[in-house]
């Protein structure tokens, strides 16, 4: 296995940063997310980031096109987007799975989303194996392997004092070859993963939810929800967006930005009618979408077991507990 001692990781990233935009997980009291590498940064190898990496392909706010108004004429012009080749280093299995979900949404079913695709196509994914699940992790229950991320170009293993790199795609192969001089070939066995605190039995859940639209469980589950967007904005798979504009005098631009199905105005139509008028309908739609609708449409769940929503929900909503409730519900 190609290895590098942890104390030399910065050197590797610094060298890579000459050829790529390199994104790494960092953690401080104020920030816990993927940021562009720069000298002096400390890469966080312990635990996952609070913010998911989805914003790398799907920024919270993204300009789409600009316009100029002159009397009754309106000029429309695209923004020229200069997308660099980039490497995401240290992405976990759960977040790799979320990229698979986002790929399905943005790149399939008739339309390709250009904004997403231009960034996604230029990205190499260097995944980092998880050996110590956090209290709120449950990816294993969803069939993921915390040590081997599917879709990665390179899988990195924590070997204690060193990191081991294994290429999984020709592009990954090429990347490792490029920086071969920094690696040492060592016979190493990756660490095993420790036990998970949380579990969720998802077998049969989508099929069961198909019969639970009118079930009283939604009154109970939605009761304590505050209707904020913390879960959706921290979720690596939530991808709903709004399109809005910014106008100053005679010019402006259109942008898209994250939106959240928990917000009251999300489905409110011009004229005031709202098909999901209360938090019961919104909470139901959220969990139905994650655990049933997405499965029906794309063949997989829209949850990766990263546990961010459980960790940060202001009122302790716990999707594993909700899955358990669904499992036990009488239909």
């Amino acid at each position: 296995m190609k290895t590098i001692v942890k104390s030399r990781l910065a050197e590797l990233l610094q060298t890579m940063a000459q050829d790529f935009r390199v994104l790494v997980p960092v953690k401080s009291e104020t920030v816990s997310q993927f940021v562009p590498w720069q000298e002096g940064l400390t890469v966080n190898l312990e635990g996952n980031t609070v913010l998911p990496p989805k914003d790398i392909f799907f920024p919270q706010t993204e300009k789409m096109y600009k316009f100029k108004v002159k009397g009754s004429s309106v000029d429309i012009e695209e923004f020229a987007e200069d997308v660099q080749k980039q490497v995401i280093f240290g992405i976990r299995s759960c977040d790799m799975q979320s990229i698979d979900c986002l790929d399905k949404v943005f790149l399939t079913k008739g339309y390709e989303d250009t904004f997403y695709k231009t960034k996604r196509d230029k990205t190499l994914l260097v995944a980092l194996a998880c050996t110590k699940p956090q209290d709120t992790c449950f990816c294993e229950s969803l069939g993921l392997n915390p040590l081997e991320a599917s879709g990665a170009d390179i899988q990195v293993y924590d070997l204690g004092d060193a990191l081991g790199f294994v290429a999984k795609t020709p592009e990954g192969e090429e990347l490792l070859a490029k920086y071969a001089s920094l690696f040492t070939e060592v016979n190493a066995v990756p660490q095993k993963v420790e036990g998970f605190n949380l579990k969720a039995e998802v077998a049969g859940i989508p099929e069961k939810l198909a019969k639970m639209f009118d079930h009283p469980i939604w009154d109970e589950v939605s009761q304590k929800c505050l209707g904020c967007g913390a879960c959706a904005y921290l979720c690596p798979t939530c991808h709903c967006f709004d399109i809005s504009g910014n106008v100053k005098a005679d010019q402006g631009y259109k942008f898209r930005c994250w939106d959240c199905c928990m917000f009251s105005e999300y489905t409110r139509m011009a004229g005031g009618h709202n098909p999901r008028p209360s938090k019961k309908e919104r909470v139901r739609n959220r969990f139905m979408h994650k655990l049933y609708y997405f499965q029906e449409r794309y063949g997989q769940l829209l949850c990766t077991g990263c546990g961010r929503c459980i960790a940060k929900c202001p009122v302790g909503m716990d999707i594993t507990a909700i899955i358990e409730k669904i499992k036990e519900a009488e239909v």
């Binding site: 339309y111 989303d113 609708y293």
Partner: peptide, 8 residues
């Protein structure tokens, strides 16, 4: 185009 989520 079936991406933004709200008309499901």
């Amino acid at each position: 185009i079936g991406k933004c989520g709200r008309c499901n």
